[in-house]
């Protein structure tokens, strides 16, 4: 059933693209522009480092990136203030396309970045990476610039997790990948299991791809993105890049459970639309978890609704701005 043809052909290591001069030449030859979007929610500890390193290495030293924007979901900490101090575009998601209904979530920020940025290629990098290095950017951009066929790149990592006592665990991470999305992909889209970390938060692609797919506003965005690109353009337009180690903040199991809920819901929604599964009842939108409070088990109910933004190309303001 499964073969590894795509994996062999379309899997890269970031070091293959470390000649940034060559990437800049290719970008200029193809007359492309590149925008970096950092979606944020309370990332005051890491945002400055990401901006400084990516800006100094890939804008000041080499003109690989043409703009950096921070799209914030309404941080309560100093995220926006710190980002502004380092002279990049900083926006609150709610202020972009303000006439539309407002949603909160990473997917919402990524979708609105399509409107606010101007690049032909858009690079998304999470803002919570503790060991940020410019390889996260040039690694993902390399295949897009050097190949004529690849339109979307996705990161994978060796992922240690940073715990409260600041010690590293040698392996780990990717629990939702291994326990949720990989079994689902194996059941319905075995070829897609070649994507080693389908939920990784870093990816890049051409505007012409992103503008034609819909974006769930929350956690399901990575899942829907892969399924939609696969359905519309096939696996060969995708590539994955090994970015080595990514150190990030650990999430507790209950938080991961809520993430899994949103991902499963997005997945079911997609395969139902594709006619692969007939769900003969409405699925619920509440994740019910339990806590032991003073010898009593009490439910903790989280409403996780599945809002989804339509392809950006359908939005009149976007059509006008980008002459679509």
């Amino acid at each position: 059933m499964n073969n590894n043809d795509w994996m062999k052909k379309n899997t890269f290591h970031h070091s293959e693209f470390r000649d940034i001069r060559c990437l800049v030449e290719e970008k200029e030859k193809k007359n492309l522009s590149i925008s970096l979007c950092l979606p944020t929610l309370n990332e005051e500890k890491t945002i400055a480092k990401e901006i400084i390193i990516l800006k100094s290495e890939l804008m000041t030293r080499y003109p690989l990136l043409d703009e950096i924007v921070v799209i914030d979901s309404g941080s309560a900490d100093k995220t926006r203030e710190i980002a502004k101090a380092y002279d990049v575009g900083v926006y609150e998601a709610n202020d972009i396309l303000p006439d539309l209904e407002k949603f909160k979530g990473k997917g919402e920020n990524l979708w609105k970045a399509l409107y606010i940025t101007s690049g032909d290629i858009i690079l998304y990098i999470d803002a919570d990476i503790k060991n940020i290095h410019h390889r996260f950017a040039y690694g993902l951009l390399g295949p897009l610039l050097l190949s004529d066929d690849i339109k979307f790149t996705k990161a994978f990592y060796d992922r240690p997790i940073s715990f409260g006592d600041e010690k590293f665990r040698a392996t780990g991470g990717g629990r939702v990948t291994e326990l949720v999305i990989r079994p689902l992909l194996s059941l319905f889209f075995p070829r897609l299991t070649q994507i080693l970390q389908p939920l990784s938060g870093e990816y890049a692609g051409f505007r012409e791809v992103f503008e034609k797919i819909s974006f769930p506003t929350g956690y399901g965005v990575e899942t829907s993105m892969i399924l939609d690109i696969y359905e519309k353009w096939g696996l060969d337009v995708m590539a994955q890049v090994d970015l080595d180690r990514r150190v990030h903040k650990n999430q507790d199991t209950k938080a991961l459970g809520r993430m899994a809920f949103a991902i499963i819901k997005t997945f079911l929604n997609r395969i139902e639309k594709l006619g692969r599964l007939d769900i003969r009842q409405d699925v619920f939108d509440e994740m019910i978890q339990y806590n032991l409070v003073k010898d009593e088990i009490k439910p903790d109910i989280f409403k996780i609704e599945n809002f989804e933004r339509p392809p950006m190309i359908q939005i009149p303001e976007y059509q006008e701005k980008f002459d679509r």
Binding site: E44, A48, K49, E81, K130, S162, E166, F168
Partner: peptide, 11 residues
């Protein structure tokens, strides 16, 4: 090597 060497930057 066991220490967390992640640096943090503010303004």
């Amino acid at each position: 090597k066991d220490s967390d060497h992640s640096f943090a930057i503010t303004e």
